[in-house]
Computed example of a mutant assay.
Amino acid sequence: MGYLKDELTGFVPKVQAQEIMKDVARGSSILRLSKVETMTSDNKKFPVMVDGPGAYWVGEGERIKTSGAQWIFPEMLAKKLAVIVPVTKEKLKDTTIDVFSELKEPIAEAFYTAIDAACIFGTNSPFARNVYQAAVDAQNYIVDGTAASLDLDVSDVMALIEDAGLDVNGFSAHYGIKNRLRKLRDANGNALFVPGVDQNEFYSSPIEFSRNGAWDKAKAEIVAADWTKSLVGIRDGLEYEILKEATLQGTLDADGKPISLAEQDMVAIKATMRLGYLPIKDEAFSLLVKTAPTPAEGGN
Rank of each mutant, 00 (worst) to 15 (best):
S205L: 14
I207E: 00
I207K: 02
E208V: 06
E208H: 14
E208G: 02
F209D: 14
F209I: 10
S210L: 03
S210V: 13
S210G: 07
R211H: 13
R211F: 15
N212E: 12
N212S: 13
G213M: 07
K217G: 13
A218W: 10
K219I: 07
A220Y: 15
E221N: 15
E221L: 15
I222K: 13
I222L: 15
I222V: 14
V223I: 15
A224R: 12
A224T: 11
A225T: 06
D226R: 12
W227R: 11
T228D: 11
T228N: 14
T228C: 08
K229N: 11
K229E: 10
K229F: 15
S230P: 06
S230I: 09
L231W: 06
V232M: 02
G233R: 08
G233N: 04
I234D: 02
R235H: 01
D236H: 09
D236L: 09
D236P: 00
D236N: 12
G237N: 09
G237V: 00
G237K: 04
E239S: 14
Y240F: 15
Y240K: 07
E241C: 12
E241F: 15
I242P: 13
L243D: 05
L243I: 07
L243Y: 14
A246H: 15
T247K: 13
L248N: 04
L248G: 06
Q249H: 05
G250K: 02
T251R: 11
T251E: 04
D255H: 03
G256Q: 00
K257P: 01
P258D: 02
I259G: 05
I259Q: 06
S260E: 02
S260Y: 08
S260D: 04
S260L: 10
S260R: 09
L261I: 05
A262V: 12
A262P: 06
A262S: 08
A262D: 06
Q264W: 12
M266Q: 10
M266H: 00
V267M: 10
V267T: 04
V267K: 07
K270A: 13
K270M: 10
A271Q: 10
T272H: 04
T272S: 15
T272C: 12
T272W: 01
T272D: 12
L275W: 15
G276H: 05
G276F: 14
Y277I: 05
Y277L: 10
L278R: 01
P279G: 06
I280R: 04
I280G: 04
D282Y: 12
D282T: 09
D282M: 08
E283N: 13
A284F: 12
F285S: 05
F285K: 09
S286Q: 11
S286I: 06
L287V: 13
L288M: 10
L288E: 03
K290S: 12
K290C: 08
K290N: 09
A292W: 11
T294K: 07
T294S: 09
T294I: 00
T294F: 13
P295E: 04
A296G: 00
E297L: 02
E297H: 08
E297I: 03
G298Q: 03
G298S: 07
